[in-house]
Design a protein around this nucleic acid. Structure first.
Length: 754
DNA sequence: ACTAGGACGGTCATACTGCG
DNA sequence: CGCAGTATGACCGTCCTAGT
């Protein structure tokens, strides 16, 4: 039996010291720990190296794809994790190393940290990793295959693919129901309105250029997250349906998703308290937060202090210096005196006797004598001196505080009056803008938006007693006992600490006490949910992905949770997509990777259509996009007839391009506003910026924010152009279709192997 | 076209604080 | 003193815009 020590529970002192006392065994640590250090600068890495010194034991990098970004794409920095992995290998040269990952490297670039393979470096064909990389990139899939074969032949590479035999993949397309469609349309319309509103508000309030670009950056990212969430919510009914169907077939359900919406929930809880009327709607909170924090308001007028007079006098040193300047200017010939708008100043200074030395000699400005100096008063504003008796009416009361002469007082009141008018106007503008902002906020509150999908699913599947949640969330919303309203609960209880919640929940699932598990990224580390022969719950798993992860590695990772060795039955995978064009972009990205990993296509080709039909982010996709844009802008004819149109009736096509253009304007692809700097804006107006022209990702992202009807038509048009290109490429025989199986009727050996 | 820079969400490790 | 909960900050991945 080995003792396993969790490094993050241990202090930073020497591991073999008396206080810690670990001489042998296994030390377990996360990649996050590997780069962690205490405040005093002692690092875990150093601690390990110290413990291991001259160590010829074994280092296992499990899930080693975490370090894949050691050699990143040009322009970005290597990640700390990658560097740390490299560092520990260098510092423990005697240690043996295993790289262990379910996903390996989906790209040769991701192999940067595998220095022990001996594929590059001195004594090999490649002096440096970059040389290796360049060759691999040039060689394509074939070269990779050779490397893999070579490694296998040399006995350094063991590949155990868990056969996906028995596993079933199904892509479930979830059409939006009528309520959802309605909601979607309203939301899309609202975002478009909000955009117009923001545009005018930004100009109205005279925003800085940088501030305004900041605003738009936030706008578009919020926009995207918003519709992403809506898409997830749209799939909830389908999840419920699939789940209950699975129960009827005596199966159990695992639901995978990415974002838990915790940030939004926590915010709402801290805002409204822990008892709420209904579940929190992520998209609504998102919108509220965006508008609340970013709606451009014109400048608030400076609050006028109650003792405004003194305040302003003190604040006006500039005014006094101006006077002295004006007075000095009067000494020189008068050529520019009256050109100024100094009517008041002038009349005043002119009536004054010209006493230029009054600063040094304290003399009364009125009687022009310096006698009785103790009774002289100095104006706090113009700094002239006055006899209290010379003034009309004479000043009797010596306040000792700031005092100002009548003319200054007059000016001050004048100034105050002007300021008041100005302030009033400012205030009006401000109030107007504020009113609009509040109106928008209320509008958002009245919008019918879906709830947080995670809470929603749990609720609809019977509450937390039936569903085991394996996520990183700290708390959750639960429908209160009376059936009215919801309450925020922390997920841990008296018996179960925070750290153990996920394990506990998992156990409940594996014991069959709960038949639904919801897993997110956090829960995915080391949690196995397969139909293990040792577990009580051996029902077949139905794995539903509500939301595919960004990268294929993670997707595979998640698939792997329910598909492991020693299982009684292989799971059924249900990949959920809505029928919205914009959402297929996620499929597009993941499909690309899944394809190159061969997980889906090789695993089970009979399991329905390949996902590669959805990979749009390729050179063909770019070409198709350019074609689409040009067609809509009527620069070039469209190569295909748009959906719902007919070539016999050109007016239908015109109508379509018109609508398409309007849609593109509303999501900011066709520029209709002055966002850039002044001189370019006119050129950009009503056009598509060059950089957007080839950006398929952006096209698909923005598409998501359109009403379903036009969204789908545009997307269909895009795919039909795309298909056309693919077909042409295939006809010309230069379509790179990746790895293909070549079937031969006979195979003969030509020569003996060398 | 490509790079730089900023913002956000999510996860995790660590240090701090209050309580029995 | 140990324990649980909270605050903070680093890291990572993703997105967006502006500038060259």
């Amino acid at each position: 039996p080995f003792v396993v020590h969790a490094l993050n529970k241990l202090p930073y002192s020497k591991l073999d010291s008396k206080s810690v006392g670990i001489r042998e065994g296994v030390v377990f640590l996360t990649y996050n720990s590997l780069i962690a250090s205490s405040e005093k600068g002692r690092s875990r890495l150093h601690q390990l190296v110290q413990w291991c010194s001259n160590f010829d034991g074994l280092i296992i990098f499990d899930e080693c794809h975490k370090a894949k970004n050691l050699v990143p794409e040009a322009g970005s920095q290597p990640t700390k994790t990658g560097e740390a992995v490299l560092d520990i290998q260098a510092r423990l040269p005697e240690a043996r190393v295993i790289y262990c990952s379910a996903t390996g490297a989906s790209e040769p670039r991701n192999m940067g940290y595998m220095i022990r393979l001996g594929l590059w470096g001195p004594g090999t064909s490649f002096a440096e990793f970059n040389d290796f990389l360049a060759t691999m990139d040039k060689g394509g899939v074939g070269a990779l295959e050779l490397v893999a074969m070579d490694m296998k032949a040399r006995g350094m590479y063991v590949c155990r693919t868990l056969s996906y035999k028995g596993a079933e993949f199904e892509i479930v397309e979830v059409p939006l129901d009528s309520k959802m469609t309605d909601m979607y349309e309203k939301s899309a319309a609202f975002w478009a309105e909000l955009r117009v509103e923001l545009l005018s508000a930004a100009t109205f309030s005279g925003m800085e250029k940088s501030a305004s670009s900041q605003l738009w950056r936030l706008y578009w990212s919020s926009h995207q997250r918003f519709f992403q969430h809506i898409c997830m919510s749209a799939k909830v009914p389908a999840v419920i349906k699939l789940a209950s169907q699975a129960f009827m077939e005596d199966k159990c359900v695992v639901i995978g998703l990415q974002s838990t919406g915790e940030a939004r929930t926590e915010e709402a809880v801290s805002k409204y308290g822990i008892e709420l009327d209904d579940f929190v709607s992520g998209p609504r909170e998102l919108l509220l937060k965006f508008v609340e924090e970013n709606y451009p308001l014109p400048a608030m007028p400076e609050p006028v202090a109650v003792d405004g007079l003194e305040e302003i006098q003190r604040k006006r040193p500039s005014a006094t210096s101006e006077t002295s300047l004006a007075r000095r200017a009067r000494k020189v010939p008068k050529w520019n005196a009256e050109s100024e708008d100094e009517s008041e100043w002038q009349s005043e200074t002119d009536t004054e006797p010209d006493t230029e030395s009054d600063d040094e000699f304290q003399i009364c400005t009125i009687c022009n004598s310096g006698e009785d100096r103790k009774k002289l008063l100095q104006c706090s504003c113009c700094h002239h001196y006055f006899h209290s008796s010379c003034l009309v009416p004479p000043v009797v009361e010596e306040s000792g505080k700031d005092w100002s002469c009548d003319s200054c007082k007059e000016k001050t009141t004048e100034y105050l009056r002007a300021k008041e008018v100005y302030d009033k106007e400012l205030q009006q503008r401000y109030d107007g803008a504020l009113e609009r902002k509040v109106k928008i906020l209320n509008l958002i509150k009245s919008l019918d938006l879906p709830n947080n999908p995670l809470d929603d699913i749990i609720d609809q599947l019977g509450g937390p007693d039936k569903v085991s949640e394996i996520t990183g969330r700290r708390g959750m919303l639960v429908r209160s006992a009376g059936g009215k309203g919801v309450v925020y609960h922390t997920r841990n209880t008296k018996d179960v600490t925070m750290e153990m919640v996920n394990m506990h929940e998992k156990q409940l699932f594996m014991d069959g006490k709960k038949l639904v598990a919801i897993i997110s990224e956090a829960g995915s580390a080391g949690v196995s949910l397969q139909a293990d022969r040792r577990a009580l719950n051996q029902k077949r798993r139905v794995h539903i992905t509500l939301e595919l992860p960004w990268s294929a590695e993670r997707a595979i990772q998640q698939f792997g949770r329910t598909h492991r060795s020693n299982q009684a039955s292989a799971p059924e995978y249900r990949l959920l997509f809505t029928n919205l064009g914009g959402e297929r972009r996620f499929a597009s990205i993941v499909a690309k990777r899944l394809e190159s990993l061969g997980a889906l296509t090789q695993g089970d080709r009979r399991a329905g259509p390949s996902l590669s039909a959805y990979n749009y982010d390729s050179s063909y996709g770019k070409k198709a996009l350019v074609m689409l844009y040009k067609g809509l802008m009527e620069q070039e004819p469209l190569p295909v007839v748009p959906p719902g149109c007919s070539s016999e009736k050109p007016e239908t096509i015109d109508d379509f391009t018109l609508k398409g253009r309007a849609a593109l304007v509303s999501v900011g692809i066709i520029r209709d506003s002055i966002l850039g700097n002044g001189k370019d804006s006119a050129r950009i107006l009503g056009r598509i910026v060059d950089s957007d022209m080839h950006d398929v990702g952006r096209f698909l992202n923005r598409l998501l924010g359109l009403p379903p009807d036009i969204q789908n038509r545009l997307f269909e048009l895009f795919t039909s152009i795309f298909d056309l290109y693919i077909r042409n490429a295939r006809l010309e025989g230069n379509l790179d279709s990746g790895i293909v199986d070549m079937k031969a009727s006979t195979i003969e050996m030509q020569n003996a192997p060398k």
